[in-house]
Design a protein around this nucleic acid. Structure first.
Length: 475
RNA sequence: GGUCCCAUCGUCUAAUGGUUAGGACAUCACCCUUUCACGGUGGUAAUAUGGGUUCGAGUCCCGUUGGGAUCACCA
């Protein structure tokens, strides 16, 4: 049975790269009826951010990536929060020392740093490695602070296989003897992830490719304990541009930022699935369910992918248009409530808006004229293509006013028929009547929908009112 | 700097060693049309570079260039 884990550290927001890693982990498991585990890696209390775990929970839930085991729901391999597993790491760390894969170190952090500064880019040579184990134990018993460092005993070349990068060779000499158990008794990632992944029976470790160079160190730990290493799936970075990776630090969009900007969670998930993976067919729109069916980790790409907001925006537009009119209306209502204080035909507004917005935030910019008619210039009535100018507009609006006023059924069809008929009897082109009306109703050059649609949205009173205002301007 | 990794249109990508190097986004043009969208149709646009292997290389090998990662008591 395949078991994968998403193991974020609760340091703030859920960024896109993280979410994509979680998605791949989820899909690797779920495409094979495996289990997806959530584990919180909070061994660095300094970086802990209040509320960060809630963001992790809510984001995963929002996109439908439900976990089978985790801090909130438990499971057979708990606890699923690393800070609650401290005793486990302590036990295994000392055991690793006994096995020869690690040693006690009494150097202060500054001592270690100094040695590095002096020798510039030379690997830290820990003098404590030479301390006999008995003596080290005595010093610890005497209360001296210590850390446990990994001991690299092997020589030669380490080789491991990665699902996306293939075979990777790294010389053991390149590996540094990093801290496994900190002086505060907490493990570092380097140790905790190995212990947990083994104890939780994780079969596939999926993570960013920045971990490739330290993977041999982890393999050494597995080896020392006599454990079976997992299948490694290192995924490339999600980039902001060719040089920089996407990061919250630079103010790059996080999942919640995108949602706040009017992107649908389903669209975001769909888009990031394709950032570094493709199904081998030309299909691009996938639900999470569909992804489970077609996903295979062998089709993961190894070169970094640049996050392209333009394509996400397009895809979001596809998702919005695919919504039922009712669902779109429901999503639009909060935006309406924020913007409008006068009664408007909102149901009709939604039908007009749905094919025109790519993100929900577009609703705001496209409907600003509804609440309050902008103070427009009469030159707006000039339009070459529509063959109108101020004079024609004035004449058309004067004729249109009684016609509109007389329309019995306040619908787009009835209004359109009436105005079209007016144009015909006056010997005008449709646009010479409709364009001025649209400008009068909106005060904008471009609007979602035409003259009659705007009239339906605004209602009869406001429509007549705005036409009168236009005539006053044109007088 | 050492080590590791990466390299197809601007972007995401497809291509058993044999294709006019395909698709999508973006962009441009045209059609549709009461503006704008939606929807149609079409166009521009790529194998970083130099060698090799081969009848044949985007694909395999080597070098070069460019980019990224790593070298924390962070993950």
């Amino acid at each position: 049975m395949i078991r994968t884990r998403f193991a974020p550290s609760p340091t703030g927001y859920m960024h896109i790269g993280n979410l994509r890693t979680a998605l791949y982990e989820y899909l690797i498991a779920k495409s094979q009826n495996g289990r997806f585990i959530l584990r919180i890696e909070d061994t660095d209390q300094k970086r802990y951010v209040e509320g960060a775990t809630d963001i992790i929970y809510s984001t995963l839930k929002r996109v439908g990536m439900n976990w089978d085991e985790g801090p909130d729901i438990g499971g057979d391999f708990g606890p699923y929060v690393q800070s609650q597993r401290k005793n486990i790491y302590t036990e295994y760390a000392h055991k690793l020392v006994e096995l020869g894969g690690a040693h006690y170190c009494f150097c202060s952090q500054t001592e270690a740093d100094e040695q590095k500064d002096e020798e510039q880019n030379i690997k830290f040579q820990d003098p404590c490695k030479l301390i006999p184990l008995d003596e080290a134990k005595k010093r610890i018993a005497a209360g001296e602070p210590y850390v446990i460092r990994q001991t690299i005993r092997k020589k030669g070349t380490s080789v491991f296989k990665d699902v996306v990068y293939g075979e990777i060779e790294i010389d053991y000499d390149e590996l540094d003897e990093g801290v496994l158990l900190k002086s505060d008794g907490m493990p570092t990632y380097n140790f905790a992830n190995v212990v947990d992944d083994h104890l939780m029976e994780i079969t596939h470790v999926v993570r960013g490719n920045e971990y490739i160079s330290s993977t041999p160190k982890y393999n050494l730990i597995y080896e020392d304990f006599g454990w079976e290493p997992p299948v490694y799936v290192h995924v490339p970075q999600v980039m902001k541009d060719a040089q920089h990776k996407l990061s919250k630090r630079n103010g790059d969009a996080s999942f919640q930022d995108l949602v706040a900007k009017g992107y649908l969670p389903e669209a975001i998930l769909n888009y990031i699935a394709l950032l570094g993976w493709n199904p081998g067919t030309e299909q691009e729109i996938f639900s999470l369910e569909e992804l489970k069916q077609v996903f295979s980790m062998e089709r993961l790409n190894k070169s970094p992918a640049i996050f392209d907001i333009a394509k996400l925006t397009w895809m979001n537009g596809c998702y919005i248009r695919a919504l039922s009119p009712q669902d779109f209306h429901k999503l639009a209502i909060p935006y309406y409530e924020k913007a409008f204080t006068h009664p408007l035909n909102l149901e009709f507004l939604s039908t007009v808006l749905q094919p025109r917005v790519e993100t929900l935030a577009d609703i705001v910019t496209q409907t600003d004229f509804l609440e309050k008619l902008p103070d427009y210039d009469v030159s707006l009535f000039q339009n070459k293509k529509m063959k109108t100018d101020e004079a024609i507009a004035k004449a058309s609006l004067e004729k249109a006013l009684p016609v509109i006023s007389a329309v019995e059924e306040w619908s787009n069809e009835a209004l359109f028929v009436a105005l079209k008929q007016l144009a015909e009897t006056e010997g005008l082109k449709n646009g010479q009547v409709l364009y001025p009306v649209r400008i009068a109703l909106s005060g904008k050059e471009t609007t979602p929908g035409g003259a009659t649609e705007l009239a339906v949205i605004l209602g009869k009173d406001e429509t007549l009112n705005r036409i009168k205002q236009a005539l006053a301007k044109l007088a």
